[in-house]
């Protein structure tokens, strides 16, 4: 059971929902929370556990072997990303720009550019009771988030049972990293705010998720602060609203300290219960 938690815009409460929902579900179920927002992983500020495993993550990039190179220049010509250039009698490689397409390496007539692993980030695996928490963090300067997201998902695939509930805290936006983070999910939860910005960014996210042909529902955060446009939109588009998390200054204060909120605010706990029931029902339907 894989559930991606996403939002068109940053700062709508995606991480707040992911961490609180994961902790709440883990009171009775086995849960894995995965932070796939590898550029800005923030879930770890709210979930503390024992570090059970850590590993370095690598991507494949070409490495220039001077002795083998005939300086023919084919490599810089085939690279669409300018990840390698020829400078006089030298070839320079920029691993951060490399997409790992292997074209330069495999089209090099003298095999002077073998693909070699280069570190792009770290994966950490924590455990606290029923809750496993896995986060990946991209090294500063790395521009490609997608390979790290994809490898993190492989790690989850390998180490957890199929029917364990898996929550993926996805990157914001509607571009490649979000698509990578949500494309294997059984269900997507879109988090939004009941405001014009929230609605605008939600509608972009909905277009993206529909393009991926995913089942999805909406959670409205800071409910009460804005207007009814998001609700009207969801009705019109026949999108289920899983929960309405009330606006609360106290929630913002708890969040600012890096604390979980659901135990302090009963109304929020109730909304998490709604989401939980929805998810468990989905799981049953999936097994049948």
């Amino acid at each position: 059971m894989k559930i991606a938690i996403a939002s068109g815009k940053g700062g709508t409460g995606k991480t707040t929902l992911s961490t609180n929902l994961a902790a709440y579900l883990a009171e009775h179920e086995e849960v894995v929370l995965v932070d796939l927002d590898v550029e800005e992983p923030n879930s770890g500020l709210f979930i503390k556990g024992d570090l059970v495993h850590t590993e370095e993550k690598f991507k494949m990039t070409p490495e220039w072997i001077e002795d083998k190179c005939s300086l023919c220049g084919i490599c810089q010509e085939v690279c669409n990303f300018h990840a390698l250039i020829q400078l006089g009698t030298q070839i320079m490689v920029f691993p951060e720009l490399c997409h790992g397409c292997y074209a330069c390496s495999e089209l090099c007539p003298t095999n002077a550019l073998p693909m070699t692993p280069k570190k792009m980030g770290n994966l950490k695996h924590f455990q606290i009771g029923n809750l496993s928490f896995v986060e990946s963090r991209l090294d500063i300067g790395e521009e490609q988030a997608v390979p790290l997201i994809s490898q993190t998902q492989k790690y989850i695939e390998k180490h957890f049972q199929k029917n364990t509930i898996k929550l993926f805290d996805s990157p914001p936006g509607t571009s490649c990293p979000v698509i990578e983070a949500t494309k294997d999910a059984n269900f997507v939860i879109l988090v939004t705010e009941p405001t014009p910005f929230g609605l605008h960014d939600l509608s972009l996210a909905v277009d993206t998720i529909r393009e991926l042909k995913k089942n999805f529902g909406v959670v409205i955060n800071r409910f009460g602060i804005g207007n009814n446009d998001v609700i009207d939109y969801c009705k019109k588009e026949k999108i289920p609203i899983l929960a309405k998390i009330p606006n609360s200054r106290k929630a913002a204060e708890l969040y600012s300290h890096g604390a979980l909120i659901y135990n302090e605010i009963p109304e929020i706990k109730q909304q998490l219960e709604n989401i939980k029931n929805y998810i468990l029902k989905l799981g049953e339907r999936g097994r049948r």
Binding site: F81, I85, Q86, G88, M92, F94, L97
Partner: peptide
């Protein structure tokens, strides 16, 4: 016209 890698490309020209 280049989305990425403008820096190294200009540097190459300067070289």
């Amino acid at each position: 016209g280049e989305a990425h890698g403008a820096g190294p490309k200009t540097a190459q020209k300067l070289f």
